[in-house]
Design a protein around this nucleic acid. Structure first.
Lengths: 214, 214
DNA sequence: GCCTGTGAAGCTATTCACAGCT
DNA sequence: AGCTGTGAATAGCTTCACAGGC
């Protein structure tokens, strides 16, 4: 219950539900949501138990009510802020993507060492020099940190974020972060994921060829 | 055996091993590698069974031999190529990051709709107009595709890549891709990951406060 | 009839624990 | 003594299957 996987899928369901809402769909069945999310219907129903089920037989789940219920679990009552460190191509992409999208979870401050990038406002987000990281994070009470700096800097930045009060990290640097056990780390390891995709692409390819022979 | 998790961790171990090699470390114990990778020693040993174990009691594993063994599983004998679609901030970041890093797995072609970006060479990679996607992928025999286009374009791009022969996708678009079952999809869902980090940050924070009271 | 909610079964992944080695 | 390799135990996750409801 409330496992990492579970929470991740609920986030996916919510995004899909917003899409359905836009299309004026009022009700959705578990198997419909399942095929949109590429999981089984049983999985959807099981996941939705985490938000306190609310489906009606025959019609399924009320889309807007379901969005609200998932929001009650995933969102804080008050908006929660995140800090982004490293305003390179990747950091800029994230700033652009998250700006104004989630009212309850926005990037409230960005940091970089490059003086040229600092003291500007990018995609509605103020940029600070990295020296002010710890204090700014503390002052703004940010609890989530996004690390988009080179691998060599990542560990030091993570430690500064944690000193500032951050309890959840989203790490894009190609390195493992060593932090206290009570800090949650989500790794976005592109090298690993690409190698995985390459490995399983090859395996599928072999399977396909074997099938053609038989 | 050779599960997704297993392959992912092997990729991580390999990167750590390269770091050890640079530091002139010849041998490594499972528990050393484990603490670098933030997993248990038993997990490391179990994972290494997938490459055919090769440790010696007392001294542990020979770093360079282990790198080679993992490479035999993860890499193809001939270099394997990937296609990247969508040369925005995110795509550029990936091109820059992967350029010249892995000799056995490189981005061999990039695609975009923007005529200004096309027919240039970025980070050693040639850029093509997206109309030439399917044919170029087929001609160059690329089996891995990286999707960094907006959500609205992602499904169409994925289908074109698969028609061109791609069997593994690395998807950065905030949407689920619906492809044949024999195509591997690895999702890099930033919204999901950020919401997950926010959720567990909050939970850790609550736990910490509870501890302080007791 | 066809849906949801859920106990129970089945499956996968991780950890334990110890034999075997040096 | 302290390591690896691995069967066995455990924990965690997903799917099955069906009772209950509209």
């Amino acid at each position: 219950m409330h496992s990492q996987r579970n929470i991740g899928r609920l986030s996916v369901y919510r995004r899909l539900l917003y899409g359905l809402l836009e299309a004026r769909t009022e009700y959705v069945h578990s198997h419909t949501l399942a095929s949109l999310a590429e999981v089984t219907a049983a999985q959807v129903r099981r996941d939705l138990m985490a938000v306190g089920c609310c489906g009606t037989p025959r019609r399924g789940y009320a889309v807007s009510f379901l969005i609200e219920s998932i929001g009650e679990l995933l969102d804080t009552p008050e908006p929660q802020g995140a800090a982004l460190v490293g305003i390179g191509n990747l950091g800029s992409a994230l700033l652009a993507y998250f700006s104004g999208r989630r009212p309850k979870l926005a990037i409230m401050a960005a940091f970089d060492i490059d003086p040229a990038k600092v003291n500007r406002v990018m995609h509605g987000c103020r940029c600070y020099p990295v020296e002010k990281l710890e204090n700014t994070v503390r002052k703004k009470d940010l609890r989530v940190g996004i690390v988009t700096v080179p691998a060599s800097e990542a560990q030091g930045i993570a430690e500064a974020l944690v000193r500032g009060g951050v309890r959840g990290l989203l790490n894009f640097a190609p390195t493992r972060l060593h932090v206290a056990r009570d800090v949650f780390v989500e790794d976005m390891d592109m090298t690993m994921s690409l190698e995985k995709a390459a490995f399983f692409a090859r395996r599928e390819d072999r399977k396909r060829k074997a099938r053609r022979v038989s």
